[in-house]
Nucleic acid binder design. Structure first.
Lengths: 216, 216
DNA sequence: ACGTCGAATTTAACCAAGTCAAGTTTTTGT
DNA sequence: ACAAAAACTTGACTTGGTTAAATTCGACGT
């Protein structure tokens, strides 16, 4: 069946054990209050082994969210024929919202809220997160370039889209953290997404009152 | 004349001494290769004093670039009557390029190049830098909001503009780091800025081939 | 000029993240 | 069954960053 030997299986299991132990301790006591030594002990592993699997303490937590890293790129690559990238991304964002996907911030599961509280409340985690976002932007830029868009435009569009997505998510999370109910916030969140993609699509000129594009 | 006593003067001097010592050592041996203990010793100051002035090792280096933190916000606030924010920012970016301002990346001063090499080559520094950029974005968002633009649009526009500026700068720096001559790269850099602001202004729809804005 | 208050500094010890080298266990391929 | 390789552990070490207590030193009223 799976062509992985006992070796690979064990590796995956220890990795998982470390990640599980870390997440449990983080959710229970907070990021700063848990030392990697604690985690290693809880996972019954030595400290160097832990660092062999996760390069930094921050990655221990971010590993769980890393799945979404190249999601935008995947959406662009996998879009149906005839649909332009921006529309595909817009549609995808709407679907994530409808699913109350944790990444949208529109989710009040206690663990999810606690996790985001940690993310935004711990500078080192926020910093790591933005680096993840940067990589996600690069992947999106590549996907756009492969779709025939010139490299500079691809890169600029990618960073704009990525940061806008993060901004929207942070907005939603803040509202939920303030006690808002995701279902009641849903319509507003969809409106915000629509507005954001309209801005991306049609430009800032209308809203910032620019009269014309000058060349000097 | 100056109403600062000896006390304030001394504080500024020790702060400067620490910053100078740090910069000299960083340029000479690289970021990782210098310990904060080295810097403290070179500045003839104790380690806690050093951390009293600079919260982290990274800030020791980023302090020098921090002047630009709220520059975009200042440009928007200080723009002449009748000029819209985007045009003012565009114009300002062009002026920075013409001045070969280090922040544009279009500058081959050895120290400047070495500094940016460190910035982009050291993960922890890059992470700190993006957090600085985030704060810069917040300041810009506030300035836009004060200019009468609604809060959500302000925030979205601000993050778009900020990341686009960073992307352009990184682009320029990469070309210079590859041995390019700033004066020869200048025209291309201006074209890139114009293109970027045209994108911001008129939106991505044209370039990404979007046909229409859909609402479902 | 004197003395006191408070801020800045130092000392010394400490904690936690991350690294390294050397040796030990365990899986794999033959 | 055995040898090579990979993963793991142990223990010690470096470095960023913090804390508490003791000390120096400029500010200011008398």
């Amino acid at each position: 069946m799976t062509d992985e030997g006992l070796r690979e299986r064990k590796k995956r299991r220890t990795r998982q054990a470390i990640s599980d132990a870390a997440m449990a301790l983080f959710l229970q006591r907070g990021f700063r209050q848990v030392s990697v030594a604690d985690i290693a002990a809880a996972a019954e592993v030595s400290k160097p082994t832990l660092f062999n699997y996760f390069p930094t303490k921050e990655d221990l937590l971010l590993d769980r969210i890393a799945d979404h890293r190249e999601e935008s790129a995947r959406v662009v690559r996998g879009r149906p024929a005839g649909v332009d990238p921006l529309t595909a991304l817009h549609q995808h964002s709407r679907e994530l919202l409808a699913d109350r996907d944790p990444i949208t911030g529109l989710n009040d599961n206690p663990d999810t809220v606690a996790l985001r509280e940690m993310l935004y409340g711990t500078p080192s985690l926020a910093a790591h997160l933005t680096r993840y976002a940067a990589r996600s932007g690069e992947a999106l830029a590549e996907a756009l370039a492969d779709a025939g868009i010139d490299p500079l435009t691809s890169r600029l569009a990618a960073v704009q889209i990525t940061t806008v997505q993060m901004t929207l998510a942070e907005d939603n999370w803040r509202r939920v953290a303030d006690g808002g109910n995701p279902d009641e916030l849903y319509d507003g969140a969809v409106a915000a997404v629509d507005h954001a993609y309209a801005l991306l699509s049609a430009g800032l000129a209308v809203h910032l009152g620019r009269s014309e594009v000058d060349g000097q």
